[in-house]
Structures are given as structure tokens and as C-alpha cells.
């Protein structure tokens, strides 16, 4: 057991928590997802053979999200307010109401579009890296990002869709 591996994993945790939150939106559930991901990575470290640890961890996280978490999120009524109140440093420069609209619009995106957009816009992965993490070709990735942006635009300009509880 060399500590180098665990150190490398540890360095990725802030980014994994951030991405997990953008996927499941609720804080505790997002950390559960990260914990599952880390446990799996530590257990399967022998299967990690090449390249940097970070994309491998993201791949594990995405697969766990797809297989175990997205139904959980749909089943529960996600408290969107929590997601907005939780950040330690509330954003100052943005209009809070506009952010609420954006958050609702993000929550309404199909999972596959949110997975793609967040890897690029939040985590700053290159298109090639994001495609590899999601196991899709770059063309598919870009079309998902394009659709996500059109949808965010459509929903951001109007009132929140009827099926979402308004955030006050």
C-alpha cells in the first residue's frame, strides 16, 4: 500500500464533490456518491493501470451516478433551496433570482446533458477528456452540450417549468 495513490485520490476530492453536487444537487446525497466512488476506487486500485487518477475517478463517479443515483434523485423531491444555500461563500456578484432560475433549469436538464455540460463548464475538462469519461464520442458530447445550452436558454428566459417547485 503506497501512500502515493491515496494522496493522488485525496487531491481530486474537492472536484469530485463539486461535480457530484452538480449531478444530484443535494449535498448529503452528493457526498454519498463521492464516498461510493472513493471506496470503489480504493478497492479497485489494481484495475487502475495507466494515466492520471482524476479521469479514472470521474469515470467511476459517472458510472455510479448512472447506475445507482439518478433514480434516487428522481424519487426524492430534491430540495433545490439546499443546493443554493449550501455554498460556504454565497455568490455576491450574481443576481440571486437569476441563479435560482439557472439552478432550476439545470435540474430540469436530462441527466446525460448535465453530465456533459458540467464536465466541461464546471470542471474544465477538454472535450476529448470529457468524452472519454462519459464513454461517448466527442461529437455526441458536443451535441449534448449544445442541447443543454439551448434548453438552459429557453428555460432561463421564461418562468420555471410547472413541474418544479419555485424557489423563494
Amino acid at each position: 500500500m503506497d501512500d502515493g495513490f491515496l494522496d493522488e485520490v485525496e487531491a481530486c476530492i474537492p472536484a469530485l464533490r463539486r461535480y457530484a453536487r452538480s449531478l444530484v444537487l443535494e449535498g448529503e446525497l452528493a457526498d454519498d456518491l463521492v464516498q461510493d466512488c472513493l471506496e470503489r476506487a480504493i478497492r479497485k486500485r489494481r484495475l487502475w493501470r495507466r494515466g492520471p487518477v482524476q479521469p479514472w475517478l470521474f469515470r467511476i463517479l459517472v458510472n455510479l451516478f448512472r447506475n445507482h443515483y439518478r433514480n434516487t434523485r428522481r424519487r426524492n423531491e430534491t430540495p433545490f433551496e439546499e443546493a443554493l444555500h449550501a455554498p460556504a461563500q454565497p455568490p455576491q456578484q450574481h443576481d440571486r433570482l437569476a441563479l435560482n432560475d439557472t439552478l432550476n433549469a439545470i435540474a430540469a436538464l436530462p441527466d446525460e446533458q448535465r453530465e456533459a455540460l458540467m464536465l466541461v463548464a464546471l470542471e474544465g475538462f477538454s472535450y476529448a477528456e470529457a468524452g472519454a469519461i462519459l464513454d461517448i464520442p466527442v461529437g455526441t458530447l458536443m451535441s449534448r452540450i449544445g442541447r443543454a445550452r439551448r434548453k438552459l436558454r429557453a428555460e432561463g428566459n421564461g418562468s420555471p417549468p410547472a413541474h418544479l417547485r419555485p424557489v423563494s
Binding site: 472513493l38 471506496e39 449550501a86 460556504a88 454565497p90
Partner: peptide, 30 residues
Amino acid sequence: WQRQNEAIQALFAPIGEETVPERLRPAVLA
């Protein structure tokens, strides 16, 4: 689109600055 990216950053980037909960520390999990 740039404003969308900024909003995404404003919403979620602070989570990356938070102190990591004890239960997520690799040494603890290992």
C-alpha cells in the same frame, strides 16, 4: 453561453472550496 458558464461556476465552484468531510478522507476509507 458565457453567462451560463459563469452562473454554473457561481453555483457550484464554492463547493470545491469547502473543507472535505471526514468520512470522505481516503485514509479513513482505506
